[in-house]
């Protein structure tokens, strides 16, 4: 469990990026921070591994205040995946994945074996192991980034718009892969995005942020969609524009659902016992 308690962050230049933010991030769940540019998502995420230190307030991981943990040690036990993969361009794929275990002193051979296993885990062909990042497609690079994030088998995985720079088809693929990985590996994932569809797809808990890290609403996707807390949220999730509104039409005696654009979304059936 990660707990933000009345966290504020003022940068040296005076920008108040986060203003009195409190949130509990449950373990073994995907929590998505979603909000427009500049709302403080990255700043919040980076406080968890102390890339950014809070100005005031306390941040605890499983009851331990992060300010008491040495930053480099802390970062080595938390996975971090960012946009454009953040891979080291001068290291081959296998060495990139093995980076953190190697920093922790794991022997090279062992670290490489584990890296190859991780390539299987994230759906990468082992043949790519000897390539440099520049020789991979954007989607493959992101997979390597995820594999690197998982290399030390961390409890926590931080992801900052990890799929923001890949095309929609690859993104959909990677999203499904992440859901599968989370189910199988049971990680606590904190995921940052500005795409509300991605947030609803991935998040067990979705936190909608306004400027200054102010929480506009948090809850499950269903809760938020069913009951937007404000006009801001309604507009952000697209409820106001009817984007989320589905209407029932009866065709040949069957009830089908049609979305705001008149496109077929599905067929209405009786919800049976799960």
């Amino acid at each position: 469990m990660i707990e933000f308690r009345s966290i504020s962050k003022r940068f040296d230049d005076g920008t108040l990026a986060v203003d009195d933010f409190s949130l509990v991030i449950p373990s073994r769940r995907i929590t998505v921070l979603v909000g427009s540019s500049g709302s403080g998502k990255t700043t919040l995420l980076r406080m968890i591994n102390r890339m950014v230190d809070a100005t005031t307030g306390a941040l605890e991981i499983d009851g331990e205040n992060v300010s008491t943990i040495e930053p480099v040690q802390l970062r080595r036990r938390i996975g971090y995946v960012m946009q454009n993969s953040g891979l080291l361009p001068h290291r081959r794929v296998i060495d990139n994945i093995a980076t953190v275990p190697r920093l922790n002193g794991v022997p090279k051979k062992q670290a490489h074996e584990r890296a190859l296993e991780l390539m299987d885990t994230v759906g990468l062909d082992r043949e790519l192991a000897e390539r440099y990042p520049a020789q991979l497609s954007g989607g493959q690079q992101q997979r390597v980034g995820v594999a690197r994030g998982l290399a030390v088998d961390p409890n926590i995985l931080l992801m900052d718009e990890p799929f923001g720079a890949v095309d929609p088809i690859v993104r959909a693929d990677l999203q499904q892969e992440l859901l599968r990985l989370q189910r199988e590996l049971d990680k606590t994932v904190v995921f940052v995005t500005h795409d509300i569809d991605e947030a609803f797809l991935l998040g067990h808990q979705v936190v909608i942020l306004e400027k200054g890290g102010r929480i506009a609403q948090k809850g499950t996707p269903a809760e938020i969609l069913a009951n937007p807390a404000s006009d801001f949220v309604a507009s952000f999730v697209g409820a106001d524009r009817g984007k989320r509104a589905l209407s029932i039409q009866t065709i040949d005696g069957a009830q089908v659902l049609v979305d705001g654009d008149g496109n077929l979304a599905g067929r209405l059936v009786e919800a049976g016992p799960a």
């Binding site: 890339m51 480099v72 970062r75 960012m82 953040g86 891979l87 080291l88």
Partner: peptide, 9 residues
């Protein structure tokens, strides 16, 4: 790249 290196430890 520099930030990413710091972020992973």
């Amino acid at each position: 790249v520099r930030q990413a290196a710091t972020a992973v430890g």
